[in-house]
C-alpha cells in the first residue's frame, strides 16, 4: 500500500512550494488516477515518489508497504518496487537498449536478492515482453530512445516497467503526445500488469487514457493538494466541466 501523508515539497533551488499537503492512499491491487490542470503539481508528485533530488520534502511522509521511502536513493526505491514511467523519457546515445535493460534488471534483482539472469534467459524475457508491446528487435539494438518517436519512447517505458516488475507503478502523462493507436498499445501493456500485488498511480491531464486504463479511483490535484476524490465517473465529469472549479479555489 502506498500512503502519502500531508506531503509538502518545494523546488530545492528556489524554494518554490509545489506540493502543499497531499494525502493519498493507494492499496495494492488498485489503480488510481491523478488528474489536474497544468502546474498543479502532478509531475512533481511523480518525481518526488521516484526520489528526484531537485525537490525537497519539507513536511509529511511517503510510505510504501509501511516503510518510509523519502530518505531512500532513487535506485533503492526502484529495488523496493517503485517505478516511474517518464512523461519525457530520456535519450541515452551510445548505450544499446538491451544493455540498459540488462543493467537495470540485474541491479534490481541483485538488491531484491534474486540471482542475475543468464544471457539466454534475459533475451527470452525481453523479447517476449517486447513482442507484446510491438517493440522490434531493431529498436532493442538501437541506443536507448535515440531517434524513437514519441509513441516508441512511451512503449519503451512500459517495456522497462514490464521487465523490472515493479509493485508501485507511477505513470506520468504516459498519453501525452500519443495518437490513439499508441495510447491503445501502451494501455494494453499497462493493463496486463494490473494485479493483486501491484498498485498503480496514473497521472494524466485528459480523461481519454482512462477509457483504456480504467481506474478504481480518481483524485483531482490542484494547487498542490488533492481537491476531490471519486470513482471513475469523476474523470468524465472533469472532461465536461474542466478544472475551473478547482483552480479557482484557495489552496
Amino acid at each position: 500500500m502506498l500512503e502519502i501523508k500531508n506531503l509538502h515539497a518545494r523546488i530545492a533551488d528556489d524554494g518554490t512550494e509545489i506540493l502543499r499537503g497531499i494525502d493519498l492512499v493507494v492499496p495494492r491491487g488498485e489503480v488510481h488516477a491523478i488528474m489536474g490542470p497544468n502546474g498543479s503539481g502532478k509531475s512533481t508528485l511523480a518525481y518526488v515518489l521516484a526520489g528526484r533530488d531537485d525537490y525537497e520534502i519539507t513536511e509529511g511522509d511517503i510510505l510504501w508497504n509501511g516503510e518510509s521511502i523519502i530518505e531512500m536513493e532513487p535506485d533503492e526505491r526502484a529495488a523496493k518496487g517503485v517505478f516511474l514511467a517518464f512523461q519525457y523519457p530520456m535519450e541515452i546515445p551510445g548505450v544499446a537498449t538491451m544493455t540498459f535493460l540488462r543493467a537495470a534488471l540485474n541491479s534490481v534483482r541483485k538488491k531484491r536478492e534474486l540471482k542475475e539472469l543468464t544471457t539466454p534467459e534475459f533475451l527470452k524475457l525481453v523479447r517476449a515482453k517486447a513482442a507484446e508491446l510491438g517493440v522490434s528487435d531493431e529498436m532493442l539494438k538501437r541506443p536507448l530512445n535515440v531517434g524513437f518517436s514519441g509513441g516508441e519512447k512511451k512503449r519503451m517505458e512500459i517495456l522497462q516497467m514490464a521487465v523490472l516488475e515493479p509493485t508501485l507503478c507511477v505513470l506520468d502523462e504516459t498519453d501525452s503526445g500519443l495518437d490513439i493507436d499508441a495510447i491503445r498499445i501502451v494501455s494494453e501493456g499497462t493493463t496486463k500488469l494490473r494485479g493483486p500485488d501491484r498498485a498503480m498511480l496514473v497521472i494524466t491531464h485528459y480523461q481519454r487514457l482512462l477509457n483504456y486504463i480504467v481506474p478504481d479511483k480518481v483524485h483531482v490535484l490542484a494547487k498542490g493538494r488533492i481537491q476531490k476524490t471519486g470513482g471513475k465517473e469523476l474523470a468524465l465529469e472533469l472532461e465536461k466541466s474542466g478544472y475551473a472549479d478547482f483552480t479557482g479555489k484557495a489552496a
Binding site: 528526484r52 529495488a79 517505478f83 537495470a104
Partner: peptide, 13 residues
C-alpha cells in the same frame, strides 16, 4: 537528468 533516469531504473549511481 540522465543520471536520475538511470537510477530510477534501479541502476546504482
Amino acid at each position: 537528468d540522465l543520471l536520475f533516469y538511470c537510477r530510477s531504473r534501479g541502476i546504482p549511481s
